[in-house]
Nucleic acid binder design. Sequence first.
DNA 1: ATGGTAGTAAAACTA
Length: 267
Amino acid sequence: MKKHKFNLATFNVNGLRARLHIVLPWLQENDIDCLCLQETKVQDSDFPAGAFSSIGMNLAFKGQKAYNGVAVVSPHDIDNVAYGFGDSMDEPDDPARLLTCRIQGIDIINAYVPQGRAVDHPNFQKKLAWFKRLRTLLETRYQYSLKLVCCGDMNVAPEPIDVYAPEKKLNHVCFHEAVRKAFKDCLGWGLSDCFRLLHPDEPDQYTFYDYRIPRAIERRLGWRIDHILATDALCQNLRECSIDIRPRKMQKPSDHTFLKAEFSLKG
DNA sequence: ATGGTAGTAAAACTA
């Protein structure tokens, strides 16, 4: 019997090898068709591929020693895998920040957007440019009529509702108006924020809680910076989008959470 | 105004 759902999730693991005790059980408890991981922090030769293949998962991954790194995990074939923008502006970290592929006929873009460091640091300009390059990638390689998901750690809280104390974060690299505009300009190609689509006014819905802030979750001191963005062809069939905070509450917690979306597929 | 924690990998560096 054919499955009529497509379940996708994204998770910034902050060190995959240190989070296998979270990722592997979660995959087995959830009926996931595509899991996008960021900040695997492992070079390809050390990637724990066996742990995934032994539970029937296929993989695509690219990492750097100690930093960055993206991976896609799926029980299905992972087709058309590519890394980086391929736009001749690619720097060494870009292939470890952007993974594109196709699963079950759905185009997937797994992104780990540069954090930016500080608004007056060159990395912030690189972050703004990154969103422009992503828009160009969408324009040149895809059509907005496709079933396409662009997800990952975008390092942007799009609206005041998406961060605690927004009035104090106006000069933060994840909330500055320039980066919010860059994010929106990218979505303007034809992508919608799946979580906000289904939960338009819910405050305190965060995907990231800084380790360094004591009792951040209880105090609701978080950010909604991980996103699942999708084209209309998929959003019309969006059934659910939710934040699973469990990784942030476990032993050896992650500072990020799982963000999950369910799409129904006709035929 | 500053520092708080964590992963990687071997002293800082990024987040």
